[in-house]
């Protein structure tokens, strides 16, 4: 049992060191802070966003910041919910940054409160929602 405790301690220390490194990476790589003309800012993973919009055109992208999305199961619930929505063309869940990206057709009026309610029904909180046109 002593060996198990030692292993657990070792993995914890490694994880702790790794989590510090994660934070530094998180700040310096793949992260862009977009500034809109009205002065508002939006933190997104630019590489992920570029990949998401590949092949899409004439769309609106809703970028939702979600609190409490800490595991795959939480994220999966959100993804399933929006994939059932016939007006959503594409859905992507960015677990690392707590973002959900949903592509809608340009002519659709996005129901902001509906999106927030769906996320709440899943057990998480939508704290911010921004819409970009592409």
């Amino acid at each position: 049992m002593r060996r198990i405790y030692s292993l657990f301690l070792l993995v914890s220390l490694h994880a702790w060191a790794d989590s510090n490194r994660d934070e530094i990476d998180h700040i310096h790589t793949n992260h862009a802070q977009e500034k809109f003309v009205d002065g508002e800012t939006l933190e997104i993973d630019s590489q992920r966003f570029e990949k998401f919009i590949e092949g899409l055109s004439n769309c609106q992208i809703a970028i939702i910041s979600v609190k409490g999305m800490v595991c795959d199961f939480c994220a999966r619930g959100i993804e399933k919910t929006f994939k059932r929505d016939s007006s959503a063309i594409k859905v992507d869940v960015d677990l690392s940054n707590g973002k959900v990206l949903i592509a809608f057709a340009k002519d659709i009026k996005i129901d902001v409160n509906g999106i927030k309610e769906k996320i709440l029904a899943n057990g998480q909180n939508a704290t911010d929602l921004k819409v970009l046109g592409i």
């Binding site: 657990f8 994880a15 795959d72 690392s96």
Partner: peptide, 18 residues
């Protein structure tokens, strides 16, 4: 518990727990 690595969405996630 501690996750020895942080997986992306859809990856295999692992936890070591006491």
């Amino acid at each position: 518990g501690v996750a020895p690595y942080i997986g992306e969405y859809g990856d295999l996630h692992s936890w070591i727990m006491i």
